[in-house]
Amino acid sequence: MRLGLLYSGGKDSTLAALFLSEFYDVTLTTAHFGVTDDWHHARETAEALGFPFERLQLDPGVAEEAVARIREDGFPRNGIQLVHQHALERLAAEEFDAIADGTRRDDRVPTVSRAQAQSLEDRHGVDYIAPLSGFGRQAVDRLVESTLEVTAGPSETITRADYEAELRAIIADEEGTEAIVEYFPDHEQTHVTGVRRALE
Rank of each mutant, 00 (worst) to 15 (best):
T147N: 06
A117T: 04
E94F: 02
P110W: 01
S119M: 12
H86K: 12
V150A: 05
P60H: 10
A63C: 13
A66S: 13
G125E: 07
D127I: 09
V112L: 15
G74T: 13
D101H: 09
D106L: 06
F96L: 02
A87K: 02
G74M: 09
P110S: 11
V144M: 01
E72C: 05
A115R: 13
V62F: 05
D73R: 13
F135V: 00
P110E: 03
D59N: 15
R105H: 13
V126M: 08
L91S: 03
G125I: 11
V62G: 04
R71G: 03
V144G: 01
A100D: 01
G61A: 12
Y128D: 02
H84G: 06
R90Y: 02
G153M: 08
S113W: 05
F96A: 01
D97T: 08
A139F: 03
F96Q: 00
S146D: 14
R108L: 15
A93C: 12
L143W: 07
V67D: 01
G74R: 12
A66C: 10
R142S: 11
A87Q: 01
R105M: 12
T151N: 10
Q138N: 11
L143Q: 03
V140T: 11
R142A: 10
F96I: 03
T157W: 08
A115I: 08
A63M: 13
S146R: 12
R71M: 11
L82M: 15
S133M: 07
R137K: 15
H124C: 07
L88A: 05
S113K: 05
R90W: 02
L143I: 14
V62D: 03
A93P: 01
Q85H: 13
D107N: 15
D101N: 14
R108V: 14
G79W: 01
V140F: 05
E95I: 00
